[in-house]
């Protein structure tokens, strides 16, 4: 096997892992900080993608459409939190079912609004040459984006006063209020932040993953498994799980078939859960 081929496979697999991570971080924030499994996460990603698409079609430059997508998803996320999620804290399986209901409702709304197919915006046609192979630059750029997102969320949550309040509010809500934190407002913001990160992911991945109503389903399953495999130390755990599962599946897929890649993902997930019944980070002594 040629070294350049191997390098190509590794680089593109790393990109796949990063793409998975980008799609996962919002879910990890919402799950890790709030204990909420947001099954509608994929639909927020979709909303982000459609917002960016609609904005670019209306003539807004692509780079500017990304913050618009974040703002729109954050607003919808805040609304969903206030109306639905805030009534369900502490009931993890009820939130799962409620967010699943939200997810199919949003999906259907998207079908009604946009139809089932829509145009992509096309990837910037810049590529990198490795030996005999050329790789598109944009997916490689996703590695950097994933790192930046990870760093941003980590610093926000561990270094800022808001981060402390957010963690306190969800760990012991009653006590957080008793020391003066307006937990409900902080929780709304945290949930909106998670949704905003999903919107960001949808927008930033738009050149790679075209907007379709069902794009959410495709992402959410793997994102979801990644977060659960990660366990209680969500952020660091998710990063590792995304690289292991997403990268591994991508390597498997490039040597065998895409079905084998999926099978790899699910089987390794099962093995990891069997070996680490509470997630890989259950025994880590870290905050996030």
């Amino acid at each position: 096997m040629e070294a350049d081929f191997l390098a190509t496979v590794l680089l593109s697999s790393l990109s796949s892992a990063s793409i998975l991570l980008i799609a996962t971080i919002g879910l990890a924030v919402v799950f890790g900080l709030m204990g909420v499994i947001n099954l509608a996460h994929g639909e927020f990603l979709m909303i982000g993608a459609y917002t960016a698409l609609t904005a670019t079609q209306a003539g807004v430059p692509y780079l500017l459409s990304i913050p618009i997508a974040v703002a729109v998803t954050m607003a919808i996320g805040a609304l969903v939190e206030v109306l639905i999620i805030s009534r369900l804290y502490g009931r993890i399986f009820d939130t799962m079912l409620a967010t699943w209901g939200i997810s199919i409702a949003f999906y259907q709304l998207a079908v009604l609004t946009f139809g089932t197919v829509s145009p992509g915006i096309g990837m910037p046609q810049i590529s990198v040459q490795i030996g005999d192979y050329s790789l598109a630059l944009y997916p490689l750029l996703m590695n950097v984006v994933a790192l930046l997102m990870l760093g941003f969320v980590y610093l926000l949550m561990t270094r800022s006063v808001y981060g402390m309040k957010a963690r306190a509010s969800i760990q012991v809500p009653e006590m957080a209020r008793a020391i003066g934190i307006s937990s409900s407002r902080v929780n709304t913001l945290t949930f909106a932040l998670g949704c905003g990160l999903a919107g960001f992911a949808g927008a930033v991945l738009l050149p790679i993953v075209p907007a379709t109503p069902s794009m959410g389903f495709a992402f959410v399953i793997k994102a979801f498994l990644t977060v659960v495999v990660a366990g209680p130390v969500t952020l660091t755990g998710s990063a590792l799980a995304a690289i292991g599962l997403g990268g591994g599946a991508s390597v498997t897929a490039s040597f065998l078939t895409s079905v084998a890649g999926d099978a790899f993902f699910f089987i390794v997930t099962a093995l990891l859960l069997w070996r680490f019944p509470l997630g890989i980070s259950a025994r880590w002594r870290r905050k996030l």
Binding site: I84, R87, L88, D94, L97, A98, W100, G101, I102, S103, I104, A105, F106, Y107, Q108, L109, L112
Partner: peptide, 13 residues
């Protein structure tokens, strides 16, 4: 589908 989704949310709530 849309109605079932909404019904599910209402049920849980």
């Amino acid at each position: 589908t849309l109605i079932l989704g909404v019904v599910l949310v209402l049920l849980v709530l």
